[in-house]
Design a protein around this nucleic acid. Structure first.
Length: 257
DNA sequence: AGAACCGCCTGCTTGC
DNA sequence: TGCAAGCAGGCGGTTC
C-alpha cells in the first residue's frame, strides 16, 4: 500500500513526466470519481506531495488532489488501452496517466489550490514544537499515533512498525509516556527509514508499483512487518503480531520495550 | 475533548 | 472442489 516513500516516488516520476504538460482531457470510469471529470486543456504547473496525497497544481487556481488509499496505483502508458480496474484517466499529448484501483478506495478531488501547507511532514517543513504541543501528550498508543495523518503525514502501517522496531520502543506504549530521548529517536529513525524507502523506490510487499509498473526494493529492508513467527534479525527471538485499532502491528517483544 | 469504533470496497486466503 | 466467511487497511465520520 502506498505510504510516504511510495507516493514520493510517484511524485518524482510525475514531475518529470507531466509537469509543464497539458492535460487534454480527463475520463471517469467509476461514478464515485465523477467530480474528477471535465478537466480540459489545463497545464500541470507543479506536482507536490502532501503526506500521502498527490497534489497536481493547475494553471487555473485549481488542483487535482489524488489519494491512493490502499490499492490505488498511477500508471503511465502510451498504448491507449484500459487495463482492469482503471477508474480514471488523465490524457496527455504523448500518453495517459491512469488511476488503477481494484478496491475503489482511492479518491480524486478537484480543489482550490491550497495556500497553507501543513507542517506535520517529517521530510518537509516539520514543526517539532507544534507536534509536542498537540500530539506528544496524548494517551493513545504510539503505533496508532504514528499512523494518525493529523499527527504525522505519510506514515502507514508498514513504516510505523519499522520505525518502532528501530527505536526499540514497544508499540503499545502510550505517547504521553515517552521521554524526550525516545521522541528524538522516533524522529531520527522515521526520517532515516522514510528516506531509505524513497531511495529504494518503495516497498512492494503486495501490489505497489511505480508509474512505469516497476516494483520497489524496500521490502528487503523490512525487519518486522509481515514477519510474524519469524526470527528477529537482531536477537533471534520471535516476531509477534498484535491488533491495535483494528490493524496488525508486528514487533519484537525482546528488542522493543 | 478525546479515544475507540465503523464503513467504505473487493481480491485473496482460510476453513468446512 | 466449491463456496462462504474472514481478512486486509487509510482515513473520515460517527459513537462512546
Amino acid at each position: 500500500m502506498p505510504e510516504l516513500p511510495e507516493v514520493e516516488t510517484l511524485c518524482r516520476q510525475l514531475q518529470v513526466k507531466i509537469a509543464g504538460e497539458v492535460i487534454r482531457e480527463t475520463f471517469v470510469f467509476d461514478e464515485k470519481l465523477e467530480e474528477a471529470g471535465n478537466i480540459r486543456a489545463c497545464v500541470v504547473c507543479a506536482v507536490r506531495r502532501l503526506g500521502k496525497t498527490i497534489l497536481l497544481t493547475l494553471d487555473d487556481r485549481r488542483s487535482i488532489s489524488i489519494h491512493l488509499r490502499m490499492t490505488g496505483r498511477l500508471f503511465w502508458h502510451q498504448d491507449g488501452k484500459r487495463r482492469p480496474y482503471t477508474r480514471w484517466r488523465m490524457s496527455f499529448t504523448d500518453g495517459d496517466v491512469d488511476l488503477v484501483d481494484p478496491r475503489r478506495f482511492a479518491t480524486v478531488r478537484i480543489i482550490s489550490t491550497p495556500q497553507i501547507i501543513p507542517r506535520n511532514d517529517l521530510l518537509a517543513n516539520f514543526d517539532e514544537q507544534e507536534f509536542f504541543e498537540r500530539q506528544a501528550n496524548r494517551k493513545v498508543n504510539i503505533k496508532t499515533l504514528l499512523m494518525n495523518p493529523e499527527a504525522l503525514a505519510g506514515i502507514g502501517n508498514i513504516y510505523a512498525c519499522e520505525i518502532l522496531y528501530r527505536t526499540g520502543i514497544a508499540p503499545y506504549r502510550r505517547a504521553d509516556g515517552l521521554d524526550g530521548k525516545e521522541w528524538k529517536s522516533i524522529f531520527r529513525e522515521a526520517r532515516r527509514i522514510l528516506k531509505k524507502g524513497i531511495e529504494k523506490r518503495g516497498t512492494s510487499i503486495s501490489d505497489w508499483r511505480d508509474l512505469y509498473g516497476c516494483p520497489g526494493e524496500n521490502q528487503k529492508e523490512l525487519k518486522v512487518y509481515g514477519r510474524e513467527d519469524e526470527k528477529c534479525r537482531r536477537c533471534g527471538g520471535v516476531i509477534v503480531r498484535i491488533k491495535q485499532g483494528g490493524r496488525s502491528t508486528f514487533y519484537c517483544p525482546t528488542c522493543q520495550r
